[in-house]
Amino acid sequence: WVPTKREEKYGVAFYNYDARGADELSLQIGDTVHILETYEGWYRGYTLRKKSKKGIFPASYIHLKE
């Protein structure tokens, strides 16, 4: 896992994603996520609506905010 280059990196989910394991994070369309790390097509972070739950999710489900 590699920390993100920018201190504040955010994105928005444009697909729903159902977590398949305890380390994964479920997403709903429109969720804003804070991205902490990246690795081979995956991000690690949390949604702003539930900051206490961190997990991994596919990068392809996220539109990055500039």
Rank of each mutant, 00 (worst) to 15 (best):
K5W: 08
S52V: 07
F57W: 03
H34Q: 06
H34I: 15
R44T: 04
E8G: 11
V33H: 01
F14A: 14
S26Y: 04
R44V: 07
G30R: 02
E8D: 10
R44M: 12
S26M: 03
G41H: 06
W42C: 05
G21W: 06
W1C: 10
I56A: 08
H34M: 13
L48C: 15
F57P: 02
A19I: 03
S52H: 13
E7W: 14
V12Y: 08
G45N: 02
L64Q: 03
K9L: 13
K51P: 15
R49F: 12
F57R: 01
L25H: 02
K53D: 08
P58N: 02
G21C: 13
A22Q: 11
Y39M: 14
I35P: 01
G11I: 05
K51C: 15
L25G: 00
V12Q: 04
T47D: 05
L36K: 02
V33R: 01
D18F: 11
L27R: 00
G45P: 01
D18Y: 12
G45I: 05
T47W: 03
I29F: 05
F14H: 13
K51S: 11
K53A: 08
Y46L: 03
R20Y: 05
H63W: 12
K54W: 11
S26C: 07
S26D: 10
K54C: 14
A13T: 03
R6W: 10
K50Y: 13
K53S: 07
V12H: 05
Y43T: 00
Q28M: 11
E40H: 08
T38D: 05
K65F: 15
V33S: 00
A19G: 06
I29S: 06
H63C: 15
R20N: 08
N16F: 07
G11P: 00
A19D: 00
R20K: 12
A19V: 01
K51F: 08
R44D: 00
E7T: 13
G21I: 05
W1L: 08
W1R: 07
G55K: 03
H34W: 14
G11E: 03
I56F: 12
A22C: 10
E7H: 14
L64A: 02
D23R: 06
G30D: 01
K65W: 15
K9H: 10
I62G: 02
T32Y: 15
K65G: 08
L27N: 00
G41A: 06
I29R: 10
T38Y: 13
K5E: 10
V33D: 00
I62V: 08
L36M: 09
H34V: 15
G41R: 05
Y39S: 13
E8F: 12
K54Y: 12
G21K: 10
R49H: 12
I29V: 12
Y46I: 04
E8S: 11
R6K: 13
Y17S: 00
S52Q: 10
R44W: 15
Y15L: 15
K54S: 09
Y43F: 09
D18W: 10
G11K: 03
E40D: 13
R20E: 07
E7D: 12
R20I: 09
R6E: 12
G21V: 05
D31H: 02
K50W: 11
